[in-house]
């Protein structure tokens, strides 16, 4: 059996934390987390492993991001229990209060953990941030270093052609 190279300390801690949370936490959060854990354990057992050496590989998230994700799930469970509808205002403040790096991480987390609400919320926030931005500013946000259109293209004409395309979109 292939042994996974996960560092013991931090991820294990998080894993234990997750199990504790999944027991105490709301249905929504519990579902997501236990789904992931169960799935991983099942596949582990199926591939011939035993319970003594279960290592769960979690999505590539920092503890800080995970805390935010859990905050989101908890709030949504609470509000859906109480009023039956989710607070748009809370969502706005939640997502509006994070910086770009964290926003991207939350978007990724929402995608990997299949939390559609969070995924949509982060995506529309990122989309909102991009409106009115120039290509140069977008490269900064998405950490796209080079500018292949101008630097790499052998013929300068090509770059010029791109610059001429759809000038009204730059107004």
């Amino acid at each position: 059996m292939e042994k996974q190279q996960t560092p013991f300390g931090f991820h294990k801690l998080i894993f234990i934390l997750l199990i504790l949370l999944s027991v105490s936490m709301s249905a929504l959060g519990r579902d997501i987390l236990s789904d992931i854990i169960e799935l991983k354990i099942e596949s582990h057992i199926a591939s011939g492993g035993n319970f003594d050496s279960v290592t769960v590989e979690l999505p590539n998230l920092t503890g800080k991001t995970l805390a935010k994700v859990i905050e989101y799930c908890k709030k949504h469970e609470e509000s859906s229990e109480k009023t039956g509808e989710l607070s748009e205002k809370w969502d706005g403040e939640f997502i509006g209060g994070v910086e770009v790096g964290m926003l991207m991480d939350l978007f990724l987390a929402g995608y990997e953990l299949k939390i559609k609400g969070l995924n949509d919320l982060a995506a529309s926030r990122i989309g909102g941030m991009m409106l009115g931005k120039t290509p140069e500013e977008i490269r900064v946000i998405f950490d796209i270093k080079e500018d292949p259109l101008c630097k790499k293209s052998k013929s300068p004409k090509e770059g010029e052609r791109f610059a001429r395309d759809n000038p009204w979109a730059f107004q």
């Binding site: 770009v100 991207m104 009115g132 290509p135």
Partner: peptide
């Protein structure tokens, strides 16, 4: 900051208005 996989870039772009998309054609190849 983690770099986003291409399918997530597609996800974000598919939510933008056309005018922004025409501008962002110049971001990269």
């Amino acid at each position: 900051m983690s770099k986003l996989p291409p399918e997530l870039i597609t996800d974000i772009l598919s939510r933008l208005p056309v005018k922004s998309l025409l501008r962002f054609r110049r971001v990269s190849k």
